[in-house]
């Protein structure tokens, strides 16, 4: 199993930390992982993205041109990465702020209204965990146990009291993710 994915959105949406939790969860499941972020000018207030690769075998290139899965959280990233999903791959997006929804018919498209749901939950900060939950529903590549362990590993201990809230957000994501188009 090799999952090559990109998570892309604005800086501050939790793109990098979602990738980090995914990578740590992969380690908990004894996989090889690589987390390669955009850094520098694009991170300082602009778009942010991270390439995460989870694999059973040694990972070669940390930089990719096409992805099994793209999680897209703003229009700029949609413009850039919709075309980079492999045919038959997965595109998961939050429609908030998206004016041109994906049009490709050779990929599986899912949407999650995570911005809205996080406001309803009274905590916009759990936005990325709602998206993460949706992702794991659509691409169940890791066991929920290991994801929980990965979450605990990637949070400093002083934030461990927030784990239940994060798990709740992920559950929410699992529930509200919608199928838009399936190949």
């Amino acid at each position: 199993m090799t999952e090559e994915m990109i998570i892309a959105g604005f800086g501050g949406q939790g793109v990098l930390s979602m990738g980090k939790i995914l990578a740590y969860s992969g380690i908990m499941e004894d996989k090889e992982v690589t987390w390669f972020p955009s850094y520098g000018p694009e991170m300082r207030g602009g778009t942010a993205n991270v390439t995460v690769i989870v694999s059973d075998t040694r990972i070669s290139s940390p930089v990719l041109q096409e992805y099994d899965t793209a999680i897209i959280l703003n229009q700029q990233s949609m413009d850039k990465f919709e075309k980079a999903v492999k045919p038959g791959g997965v595109l998961l997006y939050d429609p908030n702020g998206i004016v041109h929804p994906p049009t490709r018919t050779d990929i599986n498209v899912f949407k999650v209204e995570a911005t809205k749901a996080s406001v309803e939950m009274g905590n916009p900060k759990v936005f990325n965990m709602i998206v993460f939950g949706s992702y794991l529903k659509v691409r169940p590549i890791l066991s929920p146990d290991n994801v929980e362990k990965g979450l605990a590993k990637s949070l400093p201990e002083r934030y461990h009291k927030l784990i239940p809230l994060n798990l709740e957000a992920m559950q929410k994501g699992r529930e509200i993710v919608e199928e838009v188009h399936v190949v």
Binding site: K20, E32, V33, T34, W35, F36, Y39, I59, P62, V63
Partner: peptide, 10 residues
Amino acid sequence: DGAIGQMMEK
């Protein structure tokens, strides 16, 4: 290089 420095791996 910057990629190896900034990249996270196991």
